[in-house]
Nucleic acid binder design. Structure first.
Lengths: 215, 215
DNA sequence: CGTCATTGACTGACCAGTCAATCTATGTCG
DNA sequence: CGACATAGATTGACTGGTCAGTCAATGACG
């Protein structure tokens, strides 16, 4: 029992150091960018020796890979779960938007790193993880496709394109927050979740506007 | 007259070298990424000596700055022009979407570089050019705001957020093409222009779907 | 004492930017 | 016309600094 506790303690302690480094890396990557920062910056931020980073990770790249995969897999799980449930498309899309916005609200640095250093980095990490990234797009595309088959969504708009537009709209809101171009109070986050879904599903046009255009 | 022609010839020739370097840089940046490429790669690609790059540009950064500003300013001009014209919002937004999609179709490498290396690079070039980038978002936001004031667009959706969602949707389509996740035939480009506007203005929901949701 | 965690000085490679030399085109003047 | 002058274009070897990754030594703990 005592040895078990101690064992757990030791393991936990080791795991904590690893996490300490990961969390420090998030802050450093967010502050300076992946390329602009040195591995020693991460070690310093974590309060550990330079070499320890290489005890837990094979390379600087692997640190970012780990951060990305950790978060993206949680999101994939959420999307898969939502996908399996019986609920209106609109609610499904709102659940996804909510998750992403909540992720940003909870850890803006991490989401900044993921967006800035991975999902758009077509020549480096983005390319490495393209299959994983794509999975999210495909799942969303599937949901939209289903809604189209059910007659709830227009069929003229290719589901894959619509999925990208939807995801892109969300990511750009985060980008707006990252660049401090959009207000980010609790109320703004809450409204943003609804706003993206309303824009993409219901459209920006008011009933009157739409009628005017069509009439 | 003769000396004038010769003068023009010389000037043009010098300008051509500069352009040669810029065009080569686009290809190299698109292929390898800004950070991963060396200045010598640009020189080699352009078929000029290493030092000549520094005759025309103060630094590697300045090459990318130049490429970005050249293109972004053309876009800003287009948006301003559209903004000043008397035409339906939908057509204005479609003009913008068309311009961006056409830009990609005409020079995918350049748009890849601008999106990947600048508009999302929150810690480097994106931050440098944030004021210029923002101008585009603001102009689009202004158009949406006007449409809301005229009762054509819903007023519940903050115009700045809507503008980001709209722009983000377009940029994500380009990202989809860049990562080769979306088909990119001439027909796909044509439909994409319409699709983004239809999604954002009219919404994905079919009349039947919307009625079902509301009823 | 054996195992794993931790340390940080060191190395080897890499590359942006410099610069002195060379070339080319044009202008000028005897 | 030809010799010389000037300025800008062009060249590429070189330098100085940076930094990812290594490793031998030390510490902690059972």
């Amino acid at each position: 029992m005592s040895s078990g506790r101690v064992e757990t303690q030791r393991t936990k302690s080791a795991a904590d150091k690893r996490r300490l480094i990961l969390d420090a890396a998030v802050r450093v990557f967010a502050r300076q960018g992946f390329h602009a920062c040195r591995v020693s910056d991460i070690a310093d931020e974590a309060g550990v020796a330079y070499g320890l980073v290489y005890h837990y990770f094979a390379s600087k790249d692997e640190v970012l890979d780990t951060l990305f995969l950790e978060r993206w897999n949680v999101m994939l799980e959420l999307i898969r779960q939502v996908d399996g449930e019986q609920m209106p498309v609109r609610d499904k899309l709102e659940a996804i938007a909510s998750f992403i916005v909540d992720s940003y609200q909870h850890d803006p640095d991490l989401m900044k790193v993921i967006i800035v250093e991975v999902t758009r980095a077509a020549n480096s990490f983005g390319n490495t993880h393209i299959a994983t990234i794509r999975e999210a797009y495909d799942l969303i595309g599937g949901m939209i496709s289903e809604a189209q088959a059910a007659g709830l969504f227009k069929s003229e708009i290719d589901a894959r394109f619509a999925a990208m537009a939807f995801y892109g709209a969300i990511e750009q809101l985060l980008t707006g927050w990252i660049f401090e171009l959009l207000p980010q109070g609790p109320e703004d986050f809450k409204r943003a979740k609804w706003l993206v879904v309303e824009t993409v599903c219901g459209g920006l046009e008011s009933r009157a506007g739409e009628q005017e255009r069509l009439g």
